[in-house]
C-alpha cells in the first residue's frame, strides 16, 4: 500500500514538506516528555525553579540520580528506589520464566494433543485476559493470607503467574496452531512421547514466540502497579510503587529533579527492552490484543 506514483510538481513537493512537518511535530509531542524528564533529572533544583522546562541543563549533575537511587524518601523510609528496583527484578524474573514455561506447555497441549473439550479449556483460560483485576483483588488478598505469603515476593510472583498464563497460553497457542500437525505425527511414529516431541521438535522452532512472550510478560509485570500496591509490604514493593511513594512523599521541598531521576530509573528496563527488541514488542502487543 503506497505504490503511488507521483510527479515532482511544486504542489507535490509542498505536500511532501507538509507531510514531514506533521510527522516531525507528532514526533516532538511523543519525545519531548522523555527529553524534559531526562534534562530535569540532571538539573540542580535552583536551575529548575529559575529556568524553563526546555532549557538545557547549565550545570548538569548526577546528584539527583544518586539521591533517587539511594537516599530519597519513599514513605517512611529514606533509602531511595534502588532496593525496590532489585525487588522488581526479583519478582519479574521468576514470574516471567514460570508463566512463559506454563504458557508454552499449555499452547502445545492445546494445539498438538487436542482432546474432547480442549477448545473449551482454551476459551475458559482466555477469559482471564479480559477481566478487570479489581474483581479479584479482595479474594486474592485473603487467599495470599491463607497461603502465608501475603506481602511477600512469593505472593506477588504467584499473582503475576496466575494472571499471566492466560496471555502466554494465548501467544503459544496461536503460534503452535501454525506449525503443521504432521510434524507431531511424524515424531509420534518415530517413537517420541509428549515431552520429547515438545523438547526436540516444537521448542527449537519457538524462539520468536518465546521472545514475544518474555518481552510482553516482562513489560506487563515490571509496569504493574495495582498488584504491587495491593499485595506488597514496604520491603517487598516493586519499583513502580516506590516511585509513586517517592513522588507523593511530602517532606520538605519538592525535589523535582529527584522525582524525574527516579521515574527514569523505573522506566529504563522496559525502555531498553523496547529499543533492543522493538519488533517483538510490537508483535506481542498486536498478538496479545488482536487475535483471540
Amino acid at each position: 500500500m503506497a505504490n503511488v506514483i507521483r510527479r515532482q510538481t511544486p504542489a507535490a513537493r509542498l505536500g511532501r514538506g507538509l507531510l514531514y512537518g506533521v510527522l516531525i511535530l507528532a514526533a516532538l509531542f511523543y519525545i519531548l516528555p522523555l527529553v524534559v524528564m531526562l534534562m530535569t533529572s540532571v538539573k540542580p533544583l535552583s536551575e529548575i525553579s529559575a529556568g524553563s522546562l526546555l532549557s538545557f541543563p547549565q550545570n548538569p549533575t548526577f546528584a539527583p540520580w544518586t539521591k533517587a537511587w539511594g537516599e530519597a524518601c519513599t514513605g517512611m523510609r529514606c533509602d531511595g528506589v534502588g532496593g525496590y528496583f532489585w525487588n522488581s527484578f526479583a519478582i519479574v524474573i521468576p514470574a516471567v520464566l514460570i508463566s512463559t514455561t506454563i504458557g508454552a506447555l499449555n499452547g502445545y497441549a492445546l494445539t498438538k494433543w487436542r482432546f474432547k473439550g480442549s477448545e473449551l479449556v482454551f476459551a475458559l483460560m482466555l477469559f482471564g485476559c479480559f477481566i478487570p483485576f479489581q474483581v479479584v483483588l479482595l479474594p486474592m488478598a485473603q487467599t495470599l493470607g491463607w497461603l502465608g505469603i501475603s506481602s511477600s515476593r512469593a505472593g506477588l510472583i504467584l499473582v503475576h503467574v496466575v494472571f499471566g498464563i492466560a496471555f502466554t497460553t494465548l501467544f503459544f497457542r496461536n503460534f503452535y496452531v501454525g506449525i503443521p500437525n504432521e510434524l507431531v505425527s511424524a515424531a509420534k511414529l518415530d517413537g517420541a512421547g509428549f515431552f520429547r516431541i515438545f523438547w526436540r521438535i516444537l521448542l527449537p522452532v519457538s524462539a520468536p514466540i518465546i521472545v514475544v512472550s518474555v518481552i510482553w510478560q516482562f513489560t506487563q509485570i515490571w509496569n504493574d502497579f495495582l498488584f504491587g500496591v495491593a499485595f506488597s509490604a514496604h520491603n517487598t514493593q516493586p519499583v513502580t510503587v516506590a516511585l509513586n511513594n517517592l513522588v507523593n512523599t511530602s517532606t520538605g521541598v519538592r525535589e523535582y529533579n529527584v522525582d524525574m531521576a527516579a521515574a527514569m530509573i523505573a522506566a529504563l528496563p522496559t525502555l531498553v527492552v523496547y529499543v533492543l527488541a522493538g519488533k517483538y514488542f510490537v508483535r506481542g502487543l498486536t498478538a496479545g490484543s488482536v487475535k483471540g
Binding site: 505425527s185 511424524a186 509420534k188 517413537g191 517420541a192 526436540r200 521438535i201 527449537p204 522452532v205
Partner: peptide
C-alpha cells in the same frame, strides 16, 4: 500407540523436523 506399531509414514508436506539436519531427521526414529 503409533510408536508401538512399527510403521513409518511419508507425509504430503514431508513434515521434516525443521530444527534438525537431514542426518538428525533420518536418525531421530
Amino acid at each position: 500407540t503409533p510408536a508401538d506399531r512399527d510403521i513409518a509414514m511419508v507425509f504430503q508436506s514431508y513434515a521434516l523436523y525443521p530444527s534438525m539436519t537431514v542426518r538428525q531427521n533420518i536418525s531421530f526414529g
